[in-house]
């Protein structure tokens, strides 16, 4: 048996669930999310929210912890670039191969316009993330002093604001047509990650318990207990705030290690590989084949790109 960092463990499971769910949906369902599907289908919807929670957790750890405003801004921009550049390249790729174009999709604002998309990947996620990061870029420098002196309090304040915006968003606006893929409905999950981070590093049990309770209540309020997302978020939150490591089998750890490292690539490319299999396979196949193909092809792509990049840099200086 081996120990694994709980952050990475949850990340790996979350992305597996995203791919599985999409594979399942592509084969059987147009929509997902109700508890009946857990029993009558095998939907594992909820991974995307967990990824968002972890993103928020890591954001607090690596970006909000910067010692000055300019470092904060630089890190924030760096983080945004790492999301934007591959997403943009992939978007353009799909525009080209499908011979279609949409300016809003290119500008990553289509989630505010309609629920259609050309790109064959969950583009809503980078759209929502980049939109949130833009707002944070403007706001965080103004409250930088509080980030340094009262991070826990500030994160709770932001959480209240974002929960409010989610509730107002759900009950006031018609977001159904946008499939709710707008930042005001997801920001609270991202900020919840901050709350969890500050609770965890404080080592205070009361803060950790408080954070978990806030999560559960927010989930009930916004998601409702009849949605798998609720259980995903609560389970992930529980592990994230109360545990540092988790004990699992050596082989499983090896698999999850690779999956965790390849998370972003898997997220971006699994749907593309679904399409590839669809176009190329002469045989019929079920959702499991689709799932495994999506995961493994994405992992191979990630490993190839990583290896290429390392060898390229290592040998960059050979001159002919």
């Amino acid at each position: 048996m081996k120990t694994m960092d709980v952050n990475l463990f949850i990340r790996a499971l979350a992305i597996i669930s995203v791919v599985f769910n999409h594979a399942y949906i592509d084969r059987y369902y147009e929509a997902y999310g109700s508890v009946e599907d857990v029993f009558f289908g095998l939907s594992l919807a909820g991974g995307a929210n967990v990824l968002l929670l972890i993103s928020g957790f890591n954001f607090a750890e690596f970006i909000m912890s910067k010692s000055d405003v300019s470092s904060l801004k630089i890190s924030l921009v760096g983080f945004a670039k790492k999301i934007a550049i591959p997403s943009l390249l992939l978007t353009v790729f799909f525009f080209v191969i499908l011979s279609k174009f949409n300016i809003y999709e290119l500008l990553f604002i289509r989630n505010f316009i309609d629920n259609d998309r050309i790109s064959k990947f969950p583009i809503w996620y980078p759209q929502v993330m980049l939109q949130m990061l833009l707002v944070l870029y403007l706001i965080l420098p103004l409250v930088f002093g509080f980030i340094q002196s009262k991070p826990w309090g500030l994160s709770l304040l932001f959480l209240m604001i974002t929960i409010s915006s989610a509730i107002i968003g759900i009950y006031t606006f018609e977001l159904d047509m946008l499939k709710y893929k707008v930042p005001q409905l997801y920001a609270w999950v991202f900020v919840m990650g901050w709350v969890f981070y500050y609770a965890k590093v404080s080592e205070s049990l009361s803060k950790k318990v408080f954070a978990f309770i806030i999560l559960a209540l927010s989930c009930i309020l916004i998601i409702g207990p009849y949605d798998l997302n609720f259980y995903w978020l609560c389970s992930a939150g529980y592990l994230l705030v109360f545990y540092k490591t988790i004990i699992i089998g050596k082989f499983l750890k090896k698999i999850l290690t690779i999956v965790a490292q390849a998370t972003f690539i898997i997220f971006l490319f699994h749907r593309f590989f679904f399409e590839v299999l669809e176009k190329l396979s002469p045989f019929s196949y079920g959702y499991l084949t689709l799932f495994f193909f999506g995961i493994f092809a994405s992992i191979i792509l990630w490993a190839s790109a990583t290896s290429f990049s390392r060898i390229y840099k290592r040998n960059l200086e050979s001159v002919g």
């Binding site: 120990t3 993103s55 690596f62 983080f79 790492k82 290690t257 965790a260 490292q261």
Partner: peptide, 25 residues
Amino acid sequence: FKELGGDSMTYVTISMELDEIIGFL
């Protein structure tokens, strides 16, 4: 790692490798 400007993406890679090198994280 933090002082070098490490982010969540490199965090994953390095923590995996450190786990292998040192024997635990």
